[in-house]
Amino acid sequence: MAENAADHLLEVMTGRREELAAGWIDVVSRTLAARVSQAELDRELHELYGAITEALKSGSLDPGEESWTEVRALLVELSRNRARQGFSPAETAVSVFALKAGLERLLDEGSTADAAAYLALSRITDALGMFTVDSYTATREQIISSQAEELLELSTPVVKLWDGVIGVPLVGTLDSARTQVVMEKLLQALVDTGSSRAIIDITGVPAVDTEVAQHLLKTVVAARLMGAECVVSGIRPQIAQTIVALGIEFGDIVTKATLADALRHALRGLSDAARTGAGAGGGTGIAGASGA
């Protein structure tokens, strides 16, 4: 039964190819309202039509099967393009569903074989339609995550303030993902510039809670492990009050009210190191290292 339907569908689709494809393209181009060029639409849909008839030749009616790979690949590309061009999911899926409209005329002629063929096509387009929406969503998610990544990159510059001193002005809310990026960039900058002092400026951070403090502490400890000393600056009065109210302990980490104070502290540290003949200075190590 199923095979008969497939054969008949194939017969109809190859026999009335031009008429069906033209009807299909017509419906789709009306929904998309000329936002895709006619020539491009013609090419896309003809290719898809060809691929569907090819797949039908294998006798399979299940778009999940291997003979439909070509169709699926074309649909992925189509949905990806639509998603990039800013079409809605409905406008994307209509490219598939409109194929049914052309075959509806078959029903008027009314033979059982025609009806079976229409039902078979209907099932196929449903499955392909779902697939289109899936690929559309996947593409959109990709776009969103790559944008989020770019935003992360943009929002965490590491600047060289002086020979041997680098600064990280933080703007915006700190979360785990962002701290990770800040930490990596800061540590990499320490290596690249050979700086032994770093200043993390949190003037632009709207709120500091226990989690943010935890993240800052981790960054400072990681920098110390590499042999660089970190100063946290830009703590606004309200933030200082919050930190104390929350009972957050910054331990032996040096904190300064302004970036200028932090820079003075860092430079003094550098010149102290230079005076004692240590050249470029070096990390003061971990608390307790001075024992022995």
């Binding site: 590499m226 470029a280 307790g288």
Partner: peptide
């Protein structure tokens, strides 16, 4: 946190 170990960025500073 490698308490008690001194660290430096590179051999020269170490």
């Amino acid at each position: 946190s490698l308490g008690g170990v001194r660290t430096a960025l590179n051999l020269e500073q170490g």
